[in-house]
Design a protein around this nucleic acid. Structure first.
Length: 265
DNA sequence: ACCCAGGATGGTG
DNA sequence: CACCATCATGGG
């Protein structure tokens, strides 16, 4: 168990922000947070956080997961005070960070997310983990492509994927046996445009899902996914277009503040 | 019963 | 190119 003082971080906001779908609500306001083969329990009181791991594991992994090297204070301070909507969005969700999640889990999450609601995405991800994940180190980790490649389309429909089931059967088989690692290497070497185009080549992945995977799965914070919520925000508050140039480098983070703020309505 | 949900695909004009 | 019906499914 270790303690850390961390500004610009709110676990409850992140959990409800629609970027991660596998956190569990524990007792007394704690959160169980899985990431690949790892699991940590975190507790928060103001800026004081406790984590169930030791210092070595926190520094080696979780500090990166929570994106502690990025200066969120500077980005928030750079917001145009004349921009009433963005200022309010930052004030409301200023504890959100863009997590460095596992790439495969993000890809599956947002493949499932199309024309879907957050509650059911969370439920489907939990069912996939419970039914097909393997127990390692005391908890059941989310299954890798190999663990899903043999699952039938009907069984995927049974975890609530609906018509998206065929996308996951295709994707799991496509990326099993080394395909996932090859894809990750390709994306690592690719520029933003090429990364997006490569992801859009996957069955069931269009522009919006590709943008989310780039932002949440590759930590490319210049991607600005436009879904139904953001579409309405842009139409209503930015008829002349969002000032992308001003916020180059942090567009994805601001998008996340705006998305979370719009969820409130 | 109708509309919406972190949309994408395949077909048509 | 731009539209457009369709795709499951649960909740308002």
């Amino acid at each position: 168990m270790i303690r850390r003082t961390i500004p610009h971080l709110d676990l409850a906001q992140i959990a409800a922000s629609g970027q991660c779908f596998t956190w569990g609500r524990g007792a007394a306001g704690s959160w169980t947070i899985p990431a690949g083969e790892r699991l940590v329990t975190a507790c928060q009181r103001g800026e004081e956080l406790t984590f169930s791991c030791d210092m070595a594991e926190f520094d080696a992994f979780w500090a990166g997961y929570f994106d502690l090297d990025t200066d969120y204070g500077a980005l928030k301070a750079s917001v145009d005070p004349a921009d009433r909507y963005l200022t309010a969005a930052v004030a409301h969700g200023g504890g959100i960070r863009i997590l460095r999640q596992d790439f495969w889990e993000v890809l599956v999450s947002f493949l499932i997310s199309q024309n879907n609601n957050i509650t059911r995405i969370i439920r489907s991800m939990a069912l996939l983990r419970e039914r097909y994940g393997k127990s390692t180190g005391g908890f059941r980790a989310f299954p890798r492509p190999e663990g899903l490649a043999g699952v039938s389309e009907a069984d995927f429909r049974d975890v609530g994927l609906g018509y998206r089931a065929k996308y996951l059967t295709w994707l799991s088989r496509e990326l099993a046996g080394g395909g996932l690692e090859a894809l990750e290497r390709t994306l690592l070497d690719a520029g933003d445009e090429e990364a997006e185009r490569t992801l859009m080549g996957l069955y069931g992945v269009g522009k919006k899902v590709a943008d989310c995977v780039c932002l949440f799965g590759l930590h490319r914070t210049d991607f600005f996914p436009v879904d139904t919520h953001i579409r309405q925000v842009l139409d209503r508050h930015y008829p002349g277009g969002f000032p992308r140039e001003r916020y180059r480098g942090g567009l994805g983070i601001l998008q996340q503040y705006m998305f979370y703020y719009d969820l409130k309505q």
